[in-house]
Design a protein around this nucleic acid. Sequence first.
DNA 1: GTGGTCTAGACCACT
DNA 2: GTGGTCTAGACCACG
Lengths: 134, 134, 134, 134
Amino acid sequence: MRFSIAPSDSTPIYRQIVDQVRREMAGGQLLAGDAMPSVRALAEEHTINPMTVSKAYSLLEAEGLLERRRGVGMVVAAVRSAVSPKQRLTLLHPALQAAAQQAAQLRLPADDALALFKRCLAQHPFDGDVDGKP
Amino acid sequence: MRFSIAPSDSTPIYRQIVDQVRREMAGGQLLAGDAMPSVRALAEEHTINPMTVSKAYSLLEAEGLLERRRGVGMVVAAVRSAVSPKQRLTLLHPALQAAAQQAAQLRLPADDALALFKRCLAQHPFDGDVDGKP
Amino acid sequence: MRFSIAPSDSTPIYRQIVDQVRREMAGGQLLAGDAMPSVRALAEEHTINPMTVSKAYSLLEAEGLLERRRGVGMVVAAVRSAVSPKQRLTLLHPALQAAAQQAAQLRLPADDALALFKRCLAQHPFDGDVDGKP
Amino acid sequence: MRFSIAPSDSTPIYRQIVDQVRREMAGGQLLAGDAMPSVRALAEEHTINPMTVSKAYSLLEAEGLLERRRGVGMVVAAVRSAVSPKQRLTLLHPALQAAAQQAAQLRLPADDALALFKRCLAQHPFDGDVDGKP
DNA sequence: GTGGTCTAGACCACT
DNA sequence: GTGGTCTAGACCACG
């Protein structure tokens, strides 16, 4: 899987990792048993501190979403690796809530905001694997 | 003007103030020359430390959005106090961009995301003064 | 006499007034007995608070440079209204000292700094009264 | 890098830091990527409050001159870390402009002012590292 | 009345 | 280890 890490972003790096993994698991791109990239590999790829990756993995493990498999590394845990569409909508809610508040403070008509959101969605066509997983 | 401060929110208080002022200026609720509430008044109203408010004001001053009138207080600076609708959309873009990315990672159909956003927007009618400034 | 007041400057307004009067007295443009503009006139001309002008005048009075003449206003006091060239150089020293330090931190060659200063001096040909006082 | 802090100076401590960093960056002593001394170290060295240093750093960050590397510290940002000699002269201009105005008000001959400035410059040889950075 | 500055100390978050 | 945030309180400067 591909991570997009933005060190300059205000949200901490470990949180960016955790959130993305959570969503990809909920969305079904990460299936039970899938192997996660190793701490070192991920750290080198994005030139971030291995401790940061490790912290993210540990949190996900504590959450029960990842499992530490000796000699293999971290793999996606079996539990509820896929989530119902309704639950997934709930996960998206906070982001949209915040955006809606901003739109209101900017005095932007709802139609304009919706149109812009539509365009943004068009730019994110289930990134990466249109062909499904090889 | 009315500020909504959420001390429990993860975003720091001074940032909540800064962000709101920025948007209210862009939206035209705050016009050039308008007086800002005094540091002490705002601090007492929300029972926060005056220095926290002061920090927010200082940042806005450094940004050129507020001006310090000595002995009087802070007023909205003349520069670009109102922003074109197109520019305001630009200010909303990052939030929607992030939401769209999340929706893609969650494998949510665009229509579902749009419908949810619509509902969120309905909950945020231009808060407070529908009639504009009396 | 002409005052140049910059409310946006970091140095307080009353100080801008005091400093200018001091220099103009040292330079001999303001002579003993000369009448100063009234507090109200000066305040209105620069749209500043009369209290500010009053404070500046009071400081100059306490310093013995101005005298309060009943029914007339403030006039330049008799004492040492003119200063020796050497003393005047001393008054200029701090400003040049600061500028020299800045030039050093900017790693600017002394010659370049001197040349620029020469040009600045050319722009300030004893401002205003080339004809002497009418 | 060496900072010279004068607590007795009328200009606030945090501003002294900001100004010096700005000039040292313009002068090329601080290069992009250079690490700044830690907040605590600088605070202890000059026996000032860490928050004072932090405030200075925050302002420089807001200005885009410093970057916060999380968990590491502040480093000089990449943008325009070095400035052309012409631009550096521009940075010196305001100080000389003010000095020239004072000289004019003092009715000091340009030559005298220039001579004094020359002497001041001689007292400020590029402080510290004549050989540049080892 | 206004905001600015600095201090001291506590707690948190990130790497 | 790094910086960030907030609080509490004191003192100052300006208008």
